[in-house]
Amino acid sequence: MQTAERAGPGSDGPRPTAGGGPDLAPGAGRARGTLLAGRRPGRSSGRWRALSPSSWLPALVALGALSLAWQLVAVHNPTVLPTDTAVLSELWHSPGLFWHDTLVTLQEVAVGLTSSFALAFGLAVAMSYLKVIERAVMPLAVVLNVTPVVALAPGLVVAFGFDLVPRYIVTAVIVFFPFLVNSLVGLRSADPEALEVLRTLHASQFETLVRLRLPSSLPYLFAAARVCLPLSVVGAVVAEMSSSGDAGGLGSLIETASAYSDLARIYAAILVLAALGLALTLAVVVLERRALSWRAPASGS
């Protein structure tokens, strides 16, 4: 049950009719505890478990081994990999450059994500009320989903120039489908008997949406966000690489550095991108923990 909950909403495969929704409904825990559960017993113990060496030591060892191997390659083949000191000094000596490009990429991600989410969620609300809209939009969304979005980028650059607009579009398009499907499944995951209770109270469609369907969809929306945030960074970087101009961005930075065979700069930019992805994902996880604190205390992971 626990694993199903975690895996369920995250899967963004083509599930246009979303028939399997209720089985995976994260809120539908019908566990029949016979005693009053204490105040989140899992919480504090989970935090302590995260601090014990048995949880972080293996990852640390693996990281150490990897950087050692990297260093060996870098020292003997400077044309394959830069040494880590070279990468770090690159970051150290021109922080302004990286900071500027990071902000550009971050802006693309923010604009692309929010506009895509707004559109996808709005469409999902419409689809959950009107089957016709679902039948009209879903096939197009599926086609969009199977199209390699990377291929769209050069065309968009031709159309909109070396501006931020094509980057916004690529970023938005790449995350649109997971947002749409998860929003729809989430909105439909509302407890059918709770829906019946609201119907017998003659609650309006709007009240049902705000008081039941929307909160029910939150776990799915967060699952989508966890998938979509790293994906949107990919979209932004790909778009930047095919339109590397004055607009900047970490993708452009990599593209330019590549022209000068500047390995240290390339890997410094990649390092920043990885940190960016990690920070964004962490932010979502923290936000999710707060927003979904009402869920049955799950084993932390």
Partner: peptide, 22 residues
């Protein structure tokens, strides 16, 4: 339907059907 519209009907389903976030 009219009785529901004037909130004269209390429906108790098989499951408690509570809203878990409330």
């Amino acid at each position: 339907r009219r009785a529901c519209a004037s909130k004269r009907v209390g429906f108790v389903p098989q499951s408690p059907a509570l809203l878990p976030w409330r």
